[in-house]
């Protein structure tokens, strides 16, 4: 006779990757839908995490669902690996999965990020998970979320374009800086999370899969590999990324990459690479270490094909 205990798994304190199997299945199902309809927001049952909503719980649930023991995990916050929030999320994922962690983009297989995409080009073997505070690009033009959903279904994006038109009329330029609305696969307008404009073109025809997840708003969406992501722009007023001309990284001497401005007491400022893992490697190479630096999306401020 079969004993009941032969039928169940051995007792464990937590499921692998913290989330229980049904939660992970629900996230995977949402991800599959999101990948099947690039840029379309899919709702999912976002779980309570041991972390406040709004601090990356959406990204964390995706990471925990996809992480494997062999994964190499990198977590960044505004480009930095050592922010408190990034460090907490990284150690939590490592503890819940047994995966190794890294700050080197080239080495990572799973990258969870808030507000940045690394400067070194991601490849087909890497997953990028972006934390999203507000997934709805139409929120700025229609307060009612159910109206927004109908507009997405109809590809009714006149108001979105109107917003850009009005910015040009009133400010003489498009003032939207981060979360720049982009048309995915020629169909859905998405908010690419609050990454700077600089990072938006990195999503276009990317080799890697990008997953975007909003824990509080309970929405998932995705940019599959080799998918068009086009920032909204008028044919005669081109989309421009933040100009990095003349900015030199204080620590590494690097130029032509996305810089953080560090104000000084005398009113001037210095600059520092925003991508801390990349800066770290450049600094080590400067010190004579043999470090592999991958190809970057931009060279000298120019986007590479």
């Amino acid at each position: 006779m079969t004993a009941l205990r032969d039928l169940v798994r051995p007792w464990q304190r937590y499921s692998y990757g913290f989330l229980d199997e049904s939660a992970k299945r629900a996230v995977r199902r949402g991800l599959l839908k999101a990948i099947a309809i690039p840029g379309c927001q899919i709702s999912y049952a976002s779980r309570e995490m041991p972390m406040a909503r709004g601090w990356g719980t959406g990204g964390l649930q995706v990471s925990l669902t996809l992480v494997e023991p062999e994964s190499v995990v990198k977590v960044i916050d505004q480009g930095a690996d050592d922010g408190v929030n990034a460090a907490n999320i990284r150690s939590f994922i490592a503890r819940a999965s047994g995966a190794r962690t890294t700050t080197d983009t080239l080495e990572a297989t799973l990258i969870q990020s808030r507000h940045r995409i690394p400067e070194e080009r991601l490849t087909r073997n890497q997953l990028l998970v972006l934390q999203v505070p507000d997934p709805e690009p139409l929120r700025a033009v229609v307060p009612d979320i159910s109206v927004a959903r109908i507009m997405h279904a109809d590809a009714d994006y006149g108001l979105m374009w109107l917003k850009l038109y009005e910015q040009l009329v009133q400010a003489g330029r498009v003032t939207q800086s981060s979360s720049y609305p982009s048309l995915v696969n020629g169909r859905h307008i998405m908010s690419p999370s609050p990454i700077p404009r600089w990072d938006t073109p990195k999503l276009h025809q990317a080799e890697n899969l990008t997953l975007l997840s909003a824990g509080r708003e309970k929405r998932l969406y995705a940019v599959p590999p080799w998918t068009d992501v086009k920032p909204l722009e008028f044919s005669d007023v081109a989309f421009k990324v933040e100009d990095q001309t003349g900015r030199v990284c204080e620590r590494t001497g690097a130029t032509g990459q996305f810089m953080n401005e560090m104000p000084l007491l005398d009113g001037t400022s210095t600059f520092e690479l925003s991508d801390a893992g990349f800066a770290e490697k450049l600094a080590r190479r400067r010190a004579g270490e043999a470090v592999t630096i991958g190809p970057t999306y931009y060279v000298d401020g120019e986007l590479q094909p």
Partner: peptide
């Protein structure tokens, strides 16, 4: 002007000028 432009935008006009 934007109210009028919206019509044109919906119909596919993408040149600001």
């Amino acid at each position: 002007g934007g109210n009028v432009a919206e019509r044109l935008l919906v119909a596919g006009e993408r040149s600001f000028h």
